[in-house]
């Protein structure tokens, strides 16, 4: 094997997961490559260090606090029992009325909930990207269909009011470089998941979003 071992090969090797030709391939390379031996050594230290970390004990009051809060919760069976009692003690006519009321209430809740979910999706997905080494000699950079230029250490979108603009770290227009500055994006882009960046509006407005598609894998 002329190429260096991948992180995944070394990690699997450490776990004893490699067998047969895949194991021999890595072992043969390790014999001839000092670089990979050094990486393997570092990896083994990391894994051994992780295994030496002792489990963290929860503070003793946590269990007591939880017990107190749980006592305030409705008992799991109460609701069912109450519903059963209600149905048993109610004549048919009002049961029909009750059912209609229940269906109506559920519809209203469902409607409100779908709006809430929409808002949550926007609230949970966005990630703010830290400013990077912008400035020196930077010209206009492109991310997807959008252009950004550097100004006062920030990337501002061309033609967009800077008060509502994003602080985006882009290097040579290669989206992958964003990852250096916002670690949460990297796994998503590695797995080919499109990423949405939240643009904070300093004036307190609703902000905007910028969608970033993963860069296609190298051929």
């Amino acid at each position: 094997m002329s190429r260096h071992a991948t992180a995944e090969q070394l990690s699997s090797y450490v776990d004893g997961e490699l067998v047969g030709p895949r194991l021999r391939l890595v072992e043969t390379h390790l014999v001839e490559c000092q670089d990979c031996r050094r990486r393997l050594d570092g990896l083994q230290r990391v894994v051994a260090g992780l295994h030496r970390l002792e489990p963290l004990a929860p503070p003793p009051v946590l269990g007591q606090d939880l017990a107190r809060r749980v006592r305030l919760e409705p008992k799991p069976r109460d609701l069912l029992e109450r519903l059963e009692e209600h149905l048993r003690s109610t004549p048919l006519q009002s049961t029909v009325g009750f059912t209609f009321a229940l269906v109506f209430a559920l519809a209203v809740i469902l409607y409100l909930f779908s709006g809430w979910v929409e808002r949550q999706v926007l609230l949970h997905q966005p990630v703010l990207v830290a400013p990077s080494e912008v400035g020196a000699g930077a010209a206009v950079r492109r991310v997807g269909p959008r252009s950004f230029h550097a100004e006062d250490g920030r990337w501002l979108e061309v033609g967009v009011d800077p008060r509502g603009a994003a602080v985006v770290a882009v290097d040579d227009g290669v989206v992958r470089q964003l990852l250096v500055f916002e670690p949460e994006l990297e796994p998503l882009l590695d797995e080919g998941v499109p990423v949405v960046l939240a643009m904070e509006d300093p004036a307190g407005g609703p902000g905007r979003v910028l969608e970033i598609l993963p860069t296609p894998p190298e051929p």
Binding site: A7, S11, R45, V46, D190
Partner: peptide, 25 residues
């Protein structure tokens, strides 16, 4: 799972190598 684990460990190795090395295994 395998690839996320490998990348996480690799990242830890890189971060820690910038500081003092950990004790040998």
């Amino acid at each position: 799972v395998r690839s996320r684990l490998a990348r996480g460990r690799e990242r830890l190795r890189q971060i820690l190598e910038e500081g003092e090395p950990l004790a040998p295994e």
